[in-house]
Design a protein around this nucleic acid. Structure first.
Lengths: 144, 144
DNA sequence: CTTGACCCTGTAGTCGACTACAGGGTTTAT
DNA sequence: ATAAACCCTGTAGTCGACTACAGGGTCAAG
C-alpha cells in the first residue's frame, strides 16, 4: 500500500511526469488519492495500468482505444466480444497499412533497380521520369 | 502559354487553392508571374509539377523529400546518384515500418484467435491478460 | 454600379501523443 | 531558515500536411 508521488511513479515506469498528467486528462489513469496540498498519490497498481497502456500502444492501439480496452478490463464480468472486435478492427487497419506500404515499396524498388545512380544523369533516371510522366488531359475540374 | 489563375489550376488538379499556396510556402512550386494586382499566374507546366508532387507523395515521400526530388529533376545534367540514394533510404524506411506492422499484426492475430469473444468474459480474454501480465519489478528508475 | 466570385496576406486550427513552460505552492534536507 | 527539489494548474509548442478563417483588394456580369 506504499503511496507513490507522481515523480516516483514516473521514474519507475520511465515516463515523464507530464505524460502521466496527460494520461490522466485523457482518462487513462487516475491517482488513488491526493494529499491535503493536492499532490497526486498512486498505489503500486498504477504501474500495472501504465504497463498495460504501453503494451497496448506497442500493439498499435491509440490512446482512445487503450482507454476503451482499460475500461473493458475493469469490468471482468463483461463479454470479451468487444475486445475481440477492437482487436480485429486493429488487425484490419494494420493490414491495410501494410498493403499500402508494400505497394509503395514494390513501385520504388522497381524504379530503384533501373536507376543508373552515379553512372547516369537525373534526365536518365527512371524514378524522376516516372514522376514526370505526361499528365492526363487538363480536365475542367468537377462540374460542382 | 495560357495563363492560369490559382483557382483554375486548383480545379484542374483537384487541389485546394490553400494547398497550392501552402506548397509555394514550402518551396515546391511558384507561379510563373503575377498580375499587377498581385494575382498568381501559372503556366500549364504547373500541372506537371503538381502531378510530380502527388505521385511522389503516393510513393511515400514527404514534402521536404519531394522538394529535393523536384530540385534534382530541375537539374537534368546532374548525377542520378542522389535520387537513387533518396529512393533507397525511402525503401529502407518503408521496410522498417512494414516490419513493425507485421510484428503488431502477428501478436494481435495470435491473441485474437485465442479470444473467446461473446463466449467468454473479459477476465478470460487472452488479449487483456497479455496486456495485464505481471510487470517487471519496481525498478528504482535511472540513477541519473 | 453594385453584387458576387475571385484573389491577396497572415494567422490559427486540426489530428495524436506528447513536451515544455510560466507562475505559482509544498516538502525535504541542511 | 532557506534553498533545492518537488508538486500544482493551465496554456502553448512540436511534427506533417493541410484547412480555415479574417479582413481586406480585384474583376466580370448584369
Amino acid at each position: 500500500m506504499e503511496n507513490l508521488t507522481i515523480g516516483k511513479l514516473a521514474r519507475q515506469v520511465d515516463l515523464g511526469v507530464e505524460t502521466l498528467r496527460y494520461y490522466e486528462r485523457r482518462g487513462l489513469i487516475e491517482p488513488q488519492s491526493r494529499t491535503d496540498s493536492g499532490y497526486r498519490l498512486y498505489k503500486e497498481d498504477a504501474r500495472q495500468r501504465l504497463q498495460f497502456i504501453r503494451r497496448a500502444q506497442v500493439l498499435g492501439f491509440s490512446l482512445d482505444e487503450v482507454a476503451e480496452l482499460l475500461s473493458l478490463s475493469d469490468r471482468p464480468e463483461q463479454s470479451a466480444a468487444e475486445v475481440k472486435r477492437l482487436t480485429r478492427a486493429k488487425i484490419a487497419d494494420i493490414e491495410t497499412r501494410i498493403l499500402d506500404l508494400e505497394r509503395m515499396k514494390s513501385a520504388l524498388s522497381a524504379l530503384e533497380e533501373q536507376c543508373p545512380g552515379h553512372a547516369g544523369t537525373t534526365a536518365e533516371c527512371p524514378i524522376l521520369s516516372a514522376l514526370n510522366q505526361q499528365a492526363p488531359e487538363p480536365e475542367q475540374g468537377e462540374p460542382a
